[in-house]
Design a protein around this nucleic acid. Structure first.
Lengths: 322, 322
DNA sequence: TTGAAAGCGTTACCAG
DNA sequence: CTGGTAACGCTTTCAA
């Protein structure tokens, strides 16, 4: 592969001049420029980004940290972000950490040694991981990492409220709530919003079950449902949970939405695949991903950020299950 | 951030010695080593991978090229591969190209300039893109890129055959086949296997509709189904298509599996979310991803590869829809 | 067993 | 407007 020296030699100029041409920086005579351009074309020269990164002390790559890749919700997000990152001329490197702190540590260290330019974090970082975070622009999505970093989140409280209002308006009296892990801010907020609204309806009973987003089982849900045969409303903290609940309810002989109304959360594609289709709280994935990415690049380009912590409203999407 | 020089200074040795220590290469006196190690610890030194990559002319990153990230099937794949790539001490960079050849070209060029170490391609590369492919280890997954590159594929023909046999054994006589784009080898092979088997059953009628995996609509499927009210068996080239078909059939008043048996392809999680759950041809995603990644690293490490083009058997997973 | 020095391919400063 | 050259942080050869 030709390098800048080869080009300089072929064009009979110095490497400095070639550098100026390829970076469109500083003065270079019109004629000289065309000479260089010809040489570049002839040699099929492309600058070595690694060398540039070394000099710049920063490589044009953005890291995305996720819990895992098995959730359609995350995938939708990466999909958006990768497109935006590409538009900025950067590459995207992904990293899943699950619950493995060792892995988290190694990845974080890798980011540091690879001099990545910025980080979007959509996962829980362990306390020890927080200290390992590279000192580069960072925005967190859905989970707060450090209070000093910009964060983007959807309005989980509002989501819970919307669901509660809908169920209340449908005259549900015996409601089952399947929450996510309550130590997660997002799960907790959804539940708070939900319960807050229903507190105003003294004749409404709510029973809650806490589930893990990834490892919950049909049995857990089914067992809970049979305990409350009078159930007439369900709010689940994710569409996946809602989909399974839907199934269990049907197995228990309930008609949806006649006997029981069901509301999910996320609005991922399975919400349209279930039978009946699922009413759900739509997370504005697109807006959130875009905001996160744009904020990150503002940080990278040292531009002003209007608001450190941003919360984006959610929306109730009504389908057949209510 | 401390660099190798700082360490050398602190340990009172040369940078060459430090290099030997961190790479565990060449002779270095036991005592000297511990001196260096102490300095490293004290300065919290980590080697700069970018500088290493520059020297090595190759960075420890693997690129994964995909059509898009919106398909759970791909996500499952990346998920596996990322874990394996991480184990090898490399980072994963992802790139989606869709049908955008301009984007494809830019990404391919980026890979070149970023000196990535290897490429896993699971997408159709345009003819002009083929020429832009960086000259590095490359394996293709699900789609053949160049005949000279190793490829991994599942046995699509076998998948079609299994589906056909199952439907035939269930005495289906009027079968609807929803294929993927027939210019894609995988879709075509599935259909060929399917039709081949059914050719032995003269009293079985098959009607096929070609769909795009990403942009197919419920209306397309529904319209096709109403044309054939006598339908008693369906084979779809993906679980997503099958899920929608299931829904249309139910809307048309069919009972599944009593009136119509339905078989999908992929075995992604929606196959378990539908009602009834979906019988499907399971692609061995795990095995395929692992084989692809391992093959790539064999290439990178210049090890022998036993077989250039590998085909992995598929499996019929029986659920409620048959 | 160790160190000096020559790269790896760029960029940017400073002279001219 | 252009060129020489010192970085950037590392590895490896060659001598000692």
């Amino acid at each position: 592969m030709a390098n800048i020296k080869d080009v300089a030699k072929k064009a009979n100029v110095s490497v400095a001049t070639v550098s100026r041409v390829i970076n469109n920086k500083g003065y270079v005579n019109h004629h000289t420029r065309s000479l260089v351009e010809a040489a570049i074309k002839e040699l099929n020269y492309v600058p070595n980004e690694v060398a540039r990164s070394l000099f710049r002390k920063s490589s044009k790559t953005i890291g995305i940290v996720l819990y895992d890749l098995k959730n359609e919700f995350f995938n939708e997000m990466i999909s958006q972000m990768e497109a935006l990152i590409f538009k900025h001329g950067y590459q995207t490197t992904i990293c899943t950490i699950g619950d493995d702190t060792e892995r988290e540590k190694t990845y974080l260290r890798m980011f540091k040694t690879n001099k990545i330019a910025g980080l979007i974090i959509c996962a829980d970082i362990s306390p020890s991981g927080i200290n390992e975070l590279p000192d580069i622009p960072l925005v967190s999505l859905e989970r707060l990492v450090k209070d000093s970093n910009p964060s983007i989140d959807c309005d989980n409280v509002m989501g819970g409220e919307l669901a509660a209002k809908k169920l209340a308006a449908s005259h549900c009296k015996h409601i089952l709530q399947f929450t996510g892990p309550l130590n997660l801010a997002c799960s907790e907020e959804r539940s708070v919003g939900f319960l807050n609204v229903l507190a105003d309806f003294p004749d409404v009973f709510v029973h809650s079950l806490e589930l893990d987003f990834n490892t919950f089982t049909e049995a857990e849900i089914s067992d809970f449902i049979v305990k409350y045969p009078e159930v007439d409303g369900v709010f689940a903290a994710s569409d996946r949970i809602a989909a399974v609940a839907l199934k269990c309810l049907k197995k228990a002989g309930k008609r949806i939405p006649e006997d029981v109304k069901v509301i999910g959360f996320d609005n991922i594609s399975i919400a349209q695949m279930t039978d009946p289709t699922l009413t759900t709280i739509s997370q504005p994935i697109h807006a959130m991903s875009e905001l996160a990415t744009n904020t990150l690049f503002k940080l990278i380009n040292k531009e002003e950020i209007d608001q450190l912590h941003q919360i984006i409203p959610v929306e109730l999407i009504e389908r057949e299950s209510t």
